[in-house]
Design a protein around this nucleic acid. Structure first.
Lengths: 204, 204
DNA sequence: CGAAATTACGAGTGATTGCTCGTATTTGTC
DNA sequence: GACAAATACGAGCAATCACTCGTAATTTCG
């Protein structure tokens, strides 16, 4: 039997195995994508048999689920740092610096997760919550914009927020994919792009 | 037998079938992604049996191959329009207008192709040529930038070109995904973003 | 120690899917 | 009409893969 819904009691060894398996899954998913990744490959990467994997995870989706939880938790923490209320009155360049820092860090620390949870082959169940978090970010950015440019229509604020996050998301991929040494260059360009887009709209 | 490498002689009916199958494949790939799309589903969508599909295509990859060729040809045509030498001396806003127009058109006319050929589950053989075309575009943009800002270092020019295409690519997805009625709004924002990024670097 | 629970194994199973092949129908050519 | 080539069918084969299950080793705890 398997598929332990009511969470059987885990020993220390078991908890370590679950971490191992999740780590291995993160690697395999990142390399091949969700659909092409095989559970046997994940087990092999973790150095265990297929049967052992299913002692700890009900199915393939459940493995991705714990990764999604990891990622969402890390994102949430980054968001909390990025949207510090004290930033609201900073000059635009400083505001941008403060806000994108934590977001870049979390994605550099979790390479491949952003791509994985945006991929078309990922089950809707797992992609949806991450999208929801993303929408929340857009909302927060819209709030910041609205306080800085009170004259803008609600619709324009929303549009601007969406575009700013799109720009951020696109260049974030480049930043994450870049070798350590080049990362700063791309981060500089990312900031330049955001300032260039936002300054004419909401001022410095 | 099947797998007709030396291209057997096609009748009119056969050529129509191939178009039907390619069209059906474009739909199914767009809906489910390359890996999850089944050849039987493609055949069914085209209203033929699995056997018939394999009268015309050696394997699943060959179907995607003709789509890749379609897309590349359309992209190439768009590039030729976008990089008209006469545009080089236009004011920046006009230059941007002229260049992105054809690129947007081709992607609106081929929805899903951009995402498909960038996906992780697509065989490398098919993704590579499209990436190469993309690299060529970056090179062309770098040329335009270099003539407009002769003082910039080669490296900076390259970086700026990459970032500009990233911004374009990100917002292009939004433009393509948007309902017809909203498209103009997003195109306006796309232009605004490009101007905002480029103007401080290379002037108007 | 000894019993129960947990962890581990890995060959095997059922379902899915890319693709085949024997056969039947349609089309082009004389 | 007659023959060959092209088109069409669809049941089924072989390979892949998520997942199972019988069994065995290890850990926990009285």
């Amino acid at each position: 039997m398997a598929g332990q819904q009511p969470e059987r009691k885990r020993q220390e060894r078991g908890r370590r195995r679950m971490e191992q398996l999740a780590d291995a899954a993160a690697e395999v998913f990142a390399e091949t994508g969700y659909a092409k990744a095989t559970t046997n490959a994940i087990a092999a990467r973790a150095g265990v048999s297929p049967g052992t994997l299913y002692q700890f995870f009900a199915n393939k989706e459940a493995i991705a689920e714990v990764l999604a939880q990891r990622y969402r938790a890390a994102l949430q923490a980054a968001h909390d740092k990025a949207f510090d209320p004290g930033f609201a009155t900073l000059p635009l360049p400083d505001l941008i610096d403060r806000m994108i820092g934590p977001m870049i860090e979390v994605n550099v620390a979790n390479p491949g997760f952003k791509a994985l949870f945006n991929a078309a082959d990922m089950p809707e169940r797992l992609a949806a919550p991450t999208r929801q978090l993303h929408q929340a970010v857009v909302g927060k950015i819209a709030e910041v914009l609205a306080t800085r440019a009170p004259d803008m229509s609600e619709e324009s604020v929303r549009t601007t927020a969406v575009v700013a996050t799109q720009i951020f998301g696109a260049l974030l991929n480049t930043v994450v994919a870049a070798p350590e040494a080049e990362r700063e260059v791309w981060i500089t360009e990312l900031k330049r792009a955001l300032r260039g887009y936002l300054e004419p709209i909401i001022g410095a």
